[in-house]
């Protein structure tokens, strides 16, 4: 059936000049396919993402009568609520985010213990993922309101018979606490999911190796699991911080106008038919977000070698 071929034929033809490159319509369409599939998304992101970003910048430094100006930023800084808005936004972030990460890591590690019903726990803990900040604000309003459940509980149990105004402007501390609790309740889930995803990526060998070499449970968490999920934590931190700078509806629902934040000021400017002023706030949020992201990336840089890649 088969006869020996000249074994050298492939070698001999090496000496020849290569044949002309193949071209055909069907094949060039094939080659263009990956790009064609990207075109709609690229166009969409340009029209509804990139262009508005640039326009936001222009709106904030360009007045309707056509002059380039910094008046919107000047007015923003002079605004009575400006300092409060900046301070409140940063305070919420500084208190809520560490708590979210602490909770998320604890939750992630708990889920690693193969508890009975852990899928049910995961479901309960993940529900806030699909809860809007507005809804979260309303939920905690029912709890911290003047006639809310906390005051009711304190009265019924006789701890504090007189109702306390947790959400009042005068009680800044408790108002901030309520907002932070609502934020922790709402936004811990996303961090938890990222942490769990990171923990699941750790090969079980590492943990077993650590155990064999005598690491205790805490040592394994501290020296193996946490360092290995550092990239996940970094991503979660950037994501959470950017989202937290936009915190808005939860504050409005809980505090009304008693607690201005950056995004709610943008909303208010817009409501006052001042899109330029709103854009100035929006641009401030963008700038702060980008600076924070860059700072995070520099401070938390994990070298590739360190991650063993």
């Amino acid at each position: 059936m088969a006869t020996p071929q000249v074994t050298g034929d492939a070698l001999a033809s090496n000496m020849l000049a290569p044949p002309a490159a193949n071209r055909s319509f069907a094949r060039s369409r094939e080659r263009a396919l990956p790009f064609l599939l990207l075109v709609p998304s690229a166009l969409f992101l340009v029209i509804f993402f990139a262009v508005p970003m640039v326009q936001a910048l222009i709106l904030s430094i360009h007045s309707p009568d056509g002059a380039w100006t910094l008046q919107y930023f000047e007015r923003m800084v002079r605004d009575v609520n400006f300092t409060d808005a900046v301070r409140n936004t940063f305070l919420i972030i500084l208190v809520a985010i560490p708590l979210q990460f602490l909770f998320a890591i604890v939750m992630g590690l708990l889920l690693q213990n193969k508890l009975r019903g852990s899928s049910l726990f995961l479901y309960f803990w993940a529900i806030p993922l699909a809860v809007s900040d507005l809804a979260a604000g309303l939920v905690w309003l029912a709890i911290f309101g003047d006639r809310g459940f906390v005051n009711s509980f304190l009265r019924t149990t006789g701890i504090a018979p007189i109702a306390f105004s947790w959400l009042s402007y005068e009680n800044y501390g408790t108002l901030l606490m309520a907002v932070v609790i609502a934020e922790v309740w709402r936004a811990t889930a996303i961090v938890m999911v990222i942490v769990v995803a990171g923990l699941q990526l750790i090969p079980p060998d590492y943990m077993e190796a650590a155990e064999v070499f005598g690491a205790s449970r805490w040592q394994r968490i501290w020296h193996v699991q946490l360092p290995l999920i550092r990239p996940s934590l970094q991503v979660a931190l950037i994501l959470r911080t950017i989202l937290a700078f936009q915190v808005f509806a939860v504050v409005i629902a809980l505090a009304g106008r008693a607690m201005p934040v950056l995004a709610s000021e943008a909303y208010n400017r817009y409501g006052e038919l001042n899109p330029n002023g709103a854009a100035a706030y929006a641009f401030l949020i963008l700038t702060i977000s980008l600076i924070t992201t860059i700072v995070y990336l520099i401070v938390l840089r994990t070298s590739e070698e360190e991650m063993g890649q």
Binding site: Q5, T7, D9, A10
Partner: peptide, 26 residues
């Protein structure tokens, strides 16, 4: 195989019946 084509670095360096490839590698 009726025949074996041995490849290395993207080229066929021997195409022959198995006994030839085994006994008389190119």
């Amino acid at each position: 195989g009726d025949r074996i084509a041995v490849m290395e670095n993207g080229a066929i360096i021997q195409a022959d019946i198995p006994s030839q490839v085994y006994e008389h590698p190119s």
